[in-house]
Amino acid sequence: MNWEILGIWLGALLTLSLYSFLYRDNPFYKFTEHLFVGMSAGYWVIYNIFNVLRPNLWDRLTGAGEAGPDLWMIIPAVFGVFMILRLVPKVASLSRFALAMIVGTGAGLSLVTTLQTNALAQVEGTILSVTGGGLSEFLDSFLLVAGVVCGLVYFFFSKAHRGVIGGAAGIGITILMIAFGASFGYTVMARISLLIGQAQFLLFRWLPTIPLFRGLAG
C-alpha cells in the first residue's frame, strides 16, 4: 500500500468535508468536526504523556536519568491525581488543593514575568523610541508615545473622562480603533494564508494523485 497517497487522500477528503460547511451544515461536516475534536484531544493527551509527564515526572521519580530517584516528585503526582479526582463527586473537593497550587504558582510566576515583559519592557521601548532619527522618525516617535499615553488614559476609569482627560481618552480610543483594525486585518490575512495553503494542497498534491488512484483501482 502506498502510505503517502493514502495520507494525501485522507487529508483531502477531510478538508473537503470541512469545506462543505460553506454550503450548509451537513453530516460530512459534522462527522469530520467530531473526528477533529476527538483526535485533537487524543493528540494532546499523548503529547502530554511523552513530552511532560514522562521526562518531568516518570523519569525523575524512577531515577531513569543520571540522578537517582527523586522522591519529591511524589508531591506533584499526588496533586495531579487530586486534580483528576474532580470527576469523582465524593472526593471532588480534593481538586481544590491542586487548583490552589496551580493558581498560586501561576499568579506568582505571571506577576513578575508580566510586569517585566508586558509593562516595564513596553514602557522602556516607548521611551527609547524617542531617541535619534530625523523629522519623520521624531513624528513617528511622538505619535507612538502620545498614542500609548492616551491609550492608557482611556483605560483609566478612576477619573471622569472630561476636559483634558476626556480629550486624551478620545485620542486614545482613536489610536485603539486603528490598532484593532490593523490587528483584525492581520488576523484575516493569516486565515487567508491558511486557506491558500489548503487550496494549494488540494490542487497540487491531491488532484495529481487522482489518475494514479484510478489506475490502482482499475
Binding site: 493558581v103 499568579a107 506577576l111 516607548t126 489610536i175 485603539l176 490598532a179 484593532f180 490593523a182
Partner: peptide, 26 residues
C-alpha cells in the same frame, strides 16, 4: 506606529491588571 501604540497601551493596561489580580489571588 499606531498599531504598536494601541497594542502597547493594551499590553501595559492588561499587565497592571494581571499584577493586581495575581496579588489579590496570592
Amino acid at each position: 506606529v499606531p498599531n504598536m501604540a494601541g497594542q502597547r497601551a493594551v499590553m501595559i493596561g492588561a499587565a497592571l491588571g494581571v499584577v493586581a489580580t495575581s496579588l489579590r489571588m496570592i
